[in-house]
């Protein structure tokens, strides 16, 4: 028999896991600061305290770059599951549920709009769609974007955010690297600007094709950028990787990117680079820009 007896039941955990309503506040993984969600959004999802860059969705990204109105292209392209691929569940089901969950049909949005007045074609990848992976639809949309831009003689900006090729589309996804690079060869020979923006993460077949082919390769701070994934490398060399390996600053040091730019400066940097490359267009001379978007340029939502 025990000497002491519990006379009270222990303090029960409250029913609700948190008294703070879901999604109102977020904790910054960089500095543990608790940030009001609306403040974060107004700051382009960059932590106001430590500058940690939260991941943006493709739509937020596009809105952060264009002055106001923009036109989307090829939103209706959908993969047919060309291999009839099944792992632990059919790829077809995976696609269907991802389309339902994201409201998008694949991992990239292509739009044409104005960056500080400069008519530009932008493709932005979305990590929430099967890891931003590149299959036939991503390949086709980016290729069409480049071809349209070449035809209309306007610059191209691709914002990379992807784990690489989409395994479930097999060698077809591998070939999208070749397809996009081929279109970039023509754009290059036509002397039109192409800027690759590398965000966290940019790895695999995306890095080994259009992410590294920009006239400028611009990275957001501390983004993971590499060809082989860190885990694969650790397995190969059987040792831990050094701190900061495959981060933006590492690539900058090794000479593979032109500059690391804070997201809040990205639009201005792109505009200035595009002007250096000969693009024209002035925000003041553009009556098309709507008052509310002119008020808070680039703010998502």
């Amino acid at each position: 028999m025990a000497w002491f007896k519990k006379t009270r039941t222990p303090i029960a955990a409250t029913d609700k896991s948190s008294r703070v309503p879901e999604g109102l506040w977020v904790k910054c993984p960089g500095c543990a600061q608790i940030i009001y969600n609306k403040d974060l959004a107004a700051n382009l999802s960059v932590c106001p305290k430590c500058g940690h860059h939260f991941r943006l969705s493709a739509i937020e990204r596009i809105q952060s770059l264009f002055d106001g109105d923009w036109q989307e292209y090829d939103a209706g392209l959908v993969s047919t599951d060309p291999l009839g691929f099944t792992d632990t569940k059919p790829y077809r089901d995976r696609l269907r549920s991802t389309i339902a969950a994201t409201g998008r049909k694949d991992a990239v949005i292509v739009g044409r709009g104005r960056i500080d007045g400069i008519d530009t074609m932008v493709a932005a990848m979305d990590y929430s769609f099967i890891g931003g992976s590149m299959g036939v639809v991503v390949g086709e949309k980016i290729t069409r974007a480049i071809e349209r831009a070449a035809a209309d003689r306007i610059p191209v900006v691709v914002v990379c955010c992807s784990g690489g090729a989409r395994m479930m589309e097999g060698a077809l996804s591998l070939m999208q690297m070749a397809k996009i690079s081929a279109a970039l060869a023509r754009l290059d020979r036509a002397r039109l600007p192409y800027i690759a923006v590398l965000t966290d993460p940019t790895t695999g077949g995306v890095t080994a094709s259009f992410a590294m082919l920009g006239d400028l390769n611009i990275a957001e701070p501390k983004a993971l950028i590499g060809f082989a994934g860190p885990r694969v490398i650790e397995q190969t060399i059987r040792q831990k990787l050094p701190e900061g390996f495959q981060r933006s600053e590492f690539l900058l040091d090794h000479g593979f990117i032109d500059l690391v730019v804070d997201r809040r400066e990205m639009k201005a940097t792109l505009a200035s680079a595009l002007r250096f490359m000969g693009a024209t267009g002035h925000p003041a001379a553009e009556p098309a820009v709507e008052p509310e978007s002119a008020e808070a340029p680039g703010a998502p939502r």
Binding site: A178, A182, A185, T207, A208, S209, F227, A228
Partner: peptide, 24 residues
């Protein structure tokens, strides 16, 4: 392609990417 530290340091992704663009 070799998945090792020196491959990444010396830009294996860039080397492959450039070949894709230039070979076409």
């Amino acid at each position: 392609a070799y998945p090792g530290i020196e491959s990444e340091e010396r830009g294996v992704a860039e080397a492959i990417a450039l070949n894709l663009r230039e070979m076409v």
